[in-house]
């Protein structure tokens, strides 16, 4: 996670940050899954489902924004 945050801060371009963010959400989903295992609470997995959907929407809307953006 730390590595991804370093890349997120370094940039150097917007698409780099978007991909870093995408990977970050994936990592968060994985950690939520592992938390649900350590606390033996199945309900946390629902959060993971929602987060995976939101990550996809975020990536797509960022892609759309980059596509339409003028230099």
């Amino acid at each position: 996670m730390l590595l991804v945050i370093i890349r997120f801060l370094k940039g150097p371009t917007l698409p780099d940050r978007v991909t870093a963010f995408d990977l970050f959400t994936t990592l968060v989903i994985a950690s939520i899954a592992i938390f649900s295992l350590t606390w033996e609470n199945v309900n946390f997995l629902d959060v993971a489902v929602v987060l995976s959907l939101i990550a996809f929407l975020g990536a797509l809307s960022f892609a759309y924004y980059i596509f339409k953006r003028k230099d």
């Binding site: 698409p15 996809f56 759309y64 980059i66």
Partner: peptide, 16 residues
């Protein structure tokens, strides 16, 4: 979703 998102971002980046 992951491949779709990656493709969309890469295409946008190439266009930029």
């Amino acid at each position: 979703t992951n491949p779709i998102g990656a493709h969309a971002i890469a295409r946008a980046a190439y266009k930029q």
